[in-house]
Structure formats: structure tokens, C-alpha cells
Simulated assay, not measured.
Amino acid sequence: MGFCGGCCKPLLIIFNIIFWLSGAAILGIGVWMIVDKNIASYFEVLNIDTHDKFFRYTAYLLIAFGVFVFLVGFCGCCGAIRGSKCLLGMYIFFLVLIFAGEIAAGVLAIIYKVKIEEKVESTLEKSIKEKYGPSGSATITEAWDFVQIQLECCGGKGPNDYNGSTFAKDPNKQIPLSCCVLTNKKDAYDSPDKATAVNITECQTKQSEYHTKGCKDSLINWANKHTGILIGVAIGIGSLQLFGIIVAACLCRQVDREEKY
């Protein structure tokens, strides 16, 4: 118990500073999901409706969770400084709850990752054929344009995904301008309709100056990369929390022992 008496308080305070930073990261992810155009476009293309209430609630839940982590960290600091068994007990309880929630979120992320990989090809093709173009969904169209410009790709499997689509009714416009080799790529991010190509006519009739690579592999890589980052962050924070639980329990025992004597 000598180690606990001398080191647990500073260790718990240092841990909570790191814990607060993790809360800021979680809060930042929630805000990022709401405001970042990139993630909104990728999710729209992958058939995840960013205007759906479930998506918005998920982002708000992450923001609330980040704030909650701040409050739990504050509770732990107060408990360590004041030597309060009550505050330390609450702190340990909330850490265990957060740890269980992170495990559940990690499992769901792994399941969802597999689900995306299984259905992505059919999802992308259906999205293009049924929802891209003036007669389709403006949100999906804008998302596809953004993804095709940024990733320099065309369609899901390739440009032929546009064959028989609602967009390709005009023989002179078999693929959209966002599939072309653009001369103003950076400006086209914000306004795809103002994009200019090396040769618009030859591009949109699939003769030359267009991207032949499909977007599927790039989108899967993007999803895997970001899911992997989230899983890694969750594992890292979870490991830290186990350390915090052990240190807090040790300090709680020390406080209890001091009260008895």
C-alpha cells in the first residue's frame, strides 16, 4: 500500500488529463460527422443517409459522450485531491460503464465494416442507376460528384455503371463531368457543375480524357482506414481506462485504510 499512498494521487490526476483529451477527441469526431463535407459525401455514396435522424443522433451521442468523459474525469480529479471514497467509487463505476460502451461500439464497428464490404458493389451500382442525375436525388448526385472528383474515379466498378442509368439518356453524355480529367479540380470540389475538363465532348462520350478506374476499391479503403482508426483509438482509450480503474481502486482502498486508523 506504500506505492498507493505515494503515487496514486498524481498518477490519477495525470491519467485524467489524458482522459480529458480522449473526451475532446470523441467530441471532435461527433462534430466532424456533422460539419465535414467529405464524410457526408462518402456516407451518402455508401448509402448511409446523413440526413437521417439515426445518423444525426449518432453524431450527437458522440458529442454528449465526449462531454460525459470530461465530467467523469473531473469527478476522478476531485476524488483524488479530496480523498473522497464516494467520488472515487462513482468514478470507478462510470469508467466501467464507458469501458463496456467502447467494447460494444468496437464490436458494432467491426460488424458494420464487414457489412459494407459485402454490399458495397451492389449498393454503388444501384445508387448510380436509380438516384444519380437531374431526375434523381440532388444529395446523392452531389455526393457522387464530390467522391469522383476527389478520388479521380468513375462509377462503382467503372464508367459502365452509368450504362442504362437515368443520367445516360443523352448519347452525348454517357458519363458525368465529374468523371473527366479536370483542369480546375480544387474549385470543382465546392461547385461540381462549374468543373471544366480537358476535352468535355470526348470525355462524356467515353472516347478519352476520363477516369477508367471505379470508386469501389478507394471507398472500401477509405472505410477500412477510418474504421481501423476508430477501433484502434477505442482499444487505446480502453487500455488507459483499465489503468485508471486499477489506480482509482488502489487509492480508494488507501483512503479507506486511513479512515480506519
Rank of each mutant, 00 (worst) to 15 (best):
C4D: 06
G6L: 09
C8Q: 02
I13K: 01
N16S: 12
I17N: 03
I18L: 15
F19C: 13
L21V: 15
A24V: 11
M33A: 08
N38V: 04
Y42G: 01
F43C: 02
D49H: 05
H51S: 09
K53S: 11
T58C: 11
A59F: 02
Y60D: 08
L61P: 00
A64R: 10
F65V: 00
F70H: 02
K85P: 02
C86G: 00
L87W: 02
M90W: 12
Y91R: 05
L95T: 12
V96M: 07
L97D: 11
I98C: 08
E102D: 00
G106F: 10
G106S: 15
L108K: 09
A109G: 04
V114S: 13
V120T: 15
K126I: 05
I128V: 13
K129F: 07
E130H: 06
E130S: 00
K131V: 02
Q148I: 06
E152I: 02
K157E: 11
D161E: 06
Y162M: 06
Y162W: 15
Y162L: 14
N163I: 10
F167M: 02
K169H: 13
P171D: 12
N172V: 11
N172E: 09
N172R: 14
K173C: 09
L177W: 04
L177P: 00
V181L: 12
P192S: 04
A195L: 08
T196V: 06
T196K: 15
N199D: 15
N199P: 03
I200P: 01
C215I: 08
S218Q: 09
A223N: 12
K225A: 13
K225E: 12
G228C: 09
G228Q: 04
G228H: 10
I229E: 10
V233E: 09
I235W: 04
S239M: 14
F243M: 14
I246W: 11
C250R: 03
D256L: 06
E258L: 14
E259H: 00
K260P: 00
K260N: 07
Y261S: 01
Y261K: 05
